[in-house]
């Protein structure tokens, strides 16, 4: 047999093109960090205690110090005068004999309770929860929703699009009918209608986004299958005697797979943004859980109080992720489809 020549298949060539771009490498590094942290949060290695009250209400971020003017902060606290109980009072206090016991019990109790700290690394929220832990946990939830719903939508869209585009005919008409129904209602209204019926919850959000969001992928893949179906290489496969399944999945699918990947990447961004908005409106992730949308929902009253750190944290963390993912999607598209890229 001949030895392997330095011959690049499509994916290796595209990978090389992508890797040659500094910005793409940077975006990928950012995304890898996010996925690792989200994965760790999912395994419970980090941010497990995001729901615990670890600081005082609206604890300052550490870099501001604990004397930043804070209505509920340390320096504005009404000093609690410690009641000094002298012997004279002891004499009239019927509880006096039990003081020791009370104090002992109190001490035992106090040990169990973590003393809320005045400052947290990135500050605390109204209930004294650590914003850093919260944003990590929220990231895990938002990213998994984005990924899962995008996978679902792309799967539905690809399968239906491939069937409709390849076979056409009656089956194609039926699928077109389906598509027309789903697209004649504005997307966001349809999401809300589904959400109204199926209620709240992480899995509901995934299902709703997935079942409503497949139309774009369907359109794209269907058009592509119709185009590829008429190509000579498929005709040649037909002349050879390849089966329908073989033509659909072995011949055509690899030729549209790059579009599917780009579509997936695009939908992850779109769905994360959609989840954020749904949760913000109270129609997405339930409030006993947390997501980036829920965090933004909480910040509106905080801003009025001058507590900007939760907003700043979630804005920076979320935007970094979404912008990196968006840029990455663009660069991926350019690398995979150099002809269709922005000229």
């Amino acid at each position: 047999m001949t030895q392997q020549q330095a011959s690049y298949g499509f994916w290796r060539a595209a990978g090389k093109r992508l890797w040659a771009d500094k910005l793409a490498r940077f975006c990928m590094a950012v995304l890898v960090v996010y996925f690792l942290v989200a994965g760790a949060a999912g395994m419970g290695w980090v941010a497990k205690d995001w729901n615990e009250e670890v600081g005082v209400s609206y604890a300052n971020p550490s870099f501001l110090g604990d004397d930043y003017p804070n209505p509920q902060g340390k320096n504005s606290i009404i000093s609690q005068d410690v009641l000094v109980i002298d012997e004279k009072q002891k004499a009239v206090d019927p509880l006096a004999p039990y003081y020791e016991e009370i104090e002992k019990n109190a001490a035992a109790y106090e040990k169990a309770e973590v003393k809320p700290s005045w400052t947290l690394l990135l500050g605390g929220d109204k209930w004294g929860r650590d914003v850093l832990d919260k944003v990590i946990k929220a990231g895990q939830v938002s990213i998994s929703i984005g990924l899962a719903s995008a996978l679902l939508a792309v799967f539905i869209g690809t399968v239906l699009g491939a069937l409709g585009g390849y076979f056409g005919g009656k089956l194609g008409d039926l699928l077109e009918w389906f598509y027309n129904i789903f697209t004649s209602v504005p997307y966001i209204l349809l999401v809300l209608a589904f959400a109204a019926v199926f209620g709240k919850g992480v899995s509901t959000v995934i299902l709703v986004l997935g079942f409503v969001g497949w139309t774009g992928t369907y359109r794209l893949i269907r058009a592509e299958y119709i185009k590829q179906r008429g190509r000579d290489y498929v005709m040649a496969a037909n002349a050879i005697g390849a089966s329908h399944g073989r033509k659909m999945f072995v011949h055509i699918l690899p030729n549209v797979s790059h579009l599917i990947l780009v579509q997936l990447s695009q939908l992850v961004v779109d769905f994360i943004k959609a989840e954020v908005i749904l949760s913000f409106l109270g129609l997405g992730v339930p409030t006993d859980s947390v997501s980036w949308g829920i965090m933004i929902n909480e910040v509106m009253p905080e801003l009025v109080l001058g507590k900007w750190w939760q907003l700043a944290t979630v804005a920076v963390v979320m935007s970094t992720f979404v912008v990196s993912f968006g840029l990455f999607t663009d660069l991926l598209r350019d690398a995979l489809d150099p002809k269709a890229s922005r000229r």
């Binding site: 961004v269 943004k273 954020v276 910040v299 968006g326």
Partner: peptide
């Protein structure tokens, strides 16, 4: 444009209003 598109509408609204 790419950067502006990526940032959520929600952030624009919340920050803009404030």
């Amino acid at each position: 444009c790419t950067a502006a598109m990526s940032i959520s509408l929600l952030l624009y609204v919340v920050v803009g209003q404030w």
